[in-house]
Design a protein around this nucleic acid. Structure first.
Length: 276
DNA sequence: AGCTGGTCCTGATGGC
DNA sequence: TGCCATCAGGACCAGC
């Protein structure tokens, strides 16, 4: 499910059960995620209070006094929350339960590309954690804009689609929203990143922010109970302009949407609208 | 069999 | 020659 909007929607849904609440117990049923879940996670967290639940890119960061729990949903992960002890028995792929005073949080992740890691404060500043250190700018950072995109794409031979996806310039843009943002900006996804001038960078930066903002807003309604109750069915993007619409008429001009493969991932675009 | 929401890692290449 | 940054491809998995 998770690109930035899904992670952000998840964060907001979990907030009341997490922030300011104390961990009662942790039950790890499957340690083999992308990296092994720490064996001592339960000892590490039990009895401790989570002060804040933050997001960096697609990572969720659970801030404790003595360190930070880092979670990532990979391709197929989701957190769900139940109040009190109302949670049903865990099912296949329900790998971790974190019981807090605010409710039970359950991590499900069939493909196990997700991660759950502990970063102790004594190990150094969180920003220097290997997974976080080289991340690009947050798309909603007030400093983010065309200039950041322009600077970041200088000298880059890869396509603009892949540059967006790489997360070194700006984080949070996954495969769906990369296509959607490029459509909105009217930019051809195959264009080498270094060929973008300041004007197109400005358009694209704005498009990235718009697409993500809209997805969060829409997710807020369509995903409301995806985290709390409804389960796995939750995520779908309302009204994708191009994503998974190969052959369907462009909503702007009617030209059939085209699908290509870049870096082994599908890209969708309108060959007529995206000529910039 | 071939596709799917992510991203780290490795090894090859190219610039200074 | 050495040290970078960049780039392509592979890897990790289950489900449809």
């Amino acid at each position: 499910m998770p690109e930035l909007p899904e992670v952000e929607v998840t964060r907001r849904a979990l907030l009341p059960a997490v922030e300011g609440q104390r961990v009662i117990s942790v039950d790890v049923r499957e340690f083999r995620l992308r990296w092994p879940v720490p064996r001592d996670l339960s000892q590490q967290l039990s009895g401790r209070r989570v002060w804040r639940l933050l997001r960096r890119g697609k990572y969720l960061l659970w801030e404790f006094d003595h360190g930070t729990l880092i979670s990532h949903l990979g391709m197929s992960g989701a957190w769900r929350v139940w109040p009190g002890d109302s949670a049903p028995p865990p099912r296949l792929h329900d790998h971790v339960d974190i019981v807090l005073t605010g409710g039970l949080l359950r991590l499900t992740d069939p493909r196990r590309f997700g991660a759950l890691l502990w970063h102790a404060s004594v190990a150094g500043p969180l920003e220097q954690h290997p997974l976080l250190a080289s991340l690009g700018m947050e798309p909603f950072d007030p400093r983010f804009g065309g200039a950041v995109l322009y600077a970041g794409t200088r000298g880059r031979a890869i396509s603009i689609k892949q540059a967006l996806l790489a997360g070194q310039i700006v984080v949070g843009v996954g495969n769906i929203y990369a296509s959607e943002a490029l459509f909105r900006a009217g930019i051809n996804p195959k264009l080498p990143a270094r060929r973008l001038g300041p004007a197109r960078c400005k358009l694209l930066a704005a498009a990235v922010q718009e697409v993500l903002t809209e997805a969060i807003r829409v997710g807020g309604s369509t995903l409301r109970d995806f985290v709390s109750a409804a389960g796995d069915e939750g995520y779908f993007m309302l009204d994708a302009a191009v994503y998974e619409r190969e052959g369907a008429p462009c909503r702007r001009c009617g030209t059939p949407i085209r699908r290509i493969v870049q870096g082994q991932r599908s890209t969708y675009y309108c060959p007529a609208c995206q000529r910039r």
